[in-house]
Design a protein around this nucleic acid. Structure first.
Length: 251
DNA sequence: TTGATTGTTACCGG
DNA sequence: TCCGGTAACAATCA
């Protein structure tokens, strides 16, 4: 994005003011993602850490500058473009040690080539927690959000309430590979698309997904059950995703 | 005006 | 010390 450019960093809303002054005029060496965390690395060694949370947005525009739209917390101005960051949950400057602490806390990111899926598999098979919780636990594996959770488990015919330790290696591999494929597509199209062959459109994501927010299963037409895992909506077709607790529940 | 929401973290009690 | 539960926070839209 703006990597390789000298950036003017400002804080139009006044918040993050000290952080902005620390960074302004520095060369942005790289922009990197660890799961849902964004790191802007600067030549001074400072790192701008952003997490967009539930409501955060970034907007990229060509220069010239226009008035910030909505609640812009950080504005990054390069040679040709400007990026506005609205409503991030996290917006701070990290020292090198804090960056390490952060990246060590985050599980393997399905989109990173240096990710080690074995770490996720080991966590999952040691837990009796439901797989629907585990794959969205960013310390177990990073990248999957609430919509992808229901969609991936439906696509792989895994019931979200299956205990982690009942997940065998082949099943885990299918979940991991599907997550990787869907998130890669999502990045490429800048949209959540989990229906094979679907195209992004101006419509809401609900038209590009299989069961999230739906009442009936696109495959078998049976009713979709909706319930909560950790307070977040979860959808399951109990016909296509039967709950199999398998043998390993022997304790 | 109210409610819902593609998320995370801090804190507290058991 | 490690859980599970709860609250807090963020911004926008219907």
């Amino acid at each position: 994005m703006l990597a390789g450019q000298r950036l003017t960093v400002s804080s139009p809303q006044g918040r993050f003011a000290e952080g902005a002054s620390l960074l302004t005029g520095q060369l942005c060496l790289a922009v990197e993602a660890f799961g849902k965390h964004l790191l802007y690395r600067f030549n001074s060694g400072d790192v701008l850490h952003i997490h967009l949370g539930l409501f955060g947005r970034t907007r990229k525009r060509k220069l010239p500058l226009v008035e910030p739209r909505g609640a812009v917390r950080v504005r990054l101005v390069g040679d040709t473009h400007v990026i506005d960051i609205n409503g991030p949950t996290i917006c701070r400057v990290l020292a090198a040690q804090d960056v390490l602490t952060l990246t060590e806390r985050i599980g393997p990111d399905v989109l990173r080539s240096d990710a080690d899926p074995d770490r996720a598999f080991n966590r999952i098979t040691r837990s009796k927690a439901p797989i629907g919780r585990l794959i969205m636990d960013q310390s177990v594996m990073a990248g999957i959000g609430n919509i992808y959770r229901s969609e991936i488990l439906w696509r792989q015919a895994v019931h979200p309430e299956t205990p982690g330790k009942a997940i065998d290696r082949a099943t885990f591999d299918r979940i991991w590979d599907d997550a990787k494929a869907l998130l890669t597509l999502g990045v490429k199209r800048n949209a959540i698309i989990t229906v094979d062959g679907a195209r992004p459109s101006k419509s809401r994501y609900s038209e590009r997904v299989n069961i999230f927010g739906k009442d009936s299963c696109p495959t078998c037409k049976e009713a979709i059950r909706r319930f909560e895992i950790d307070g977040r909506r979860t959808f399951v077709c109990e016909t296509c995703q039967p709950l199999i607790e398998k043998l390993s529940s022997v304790t």
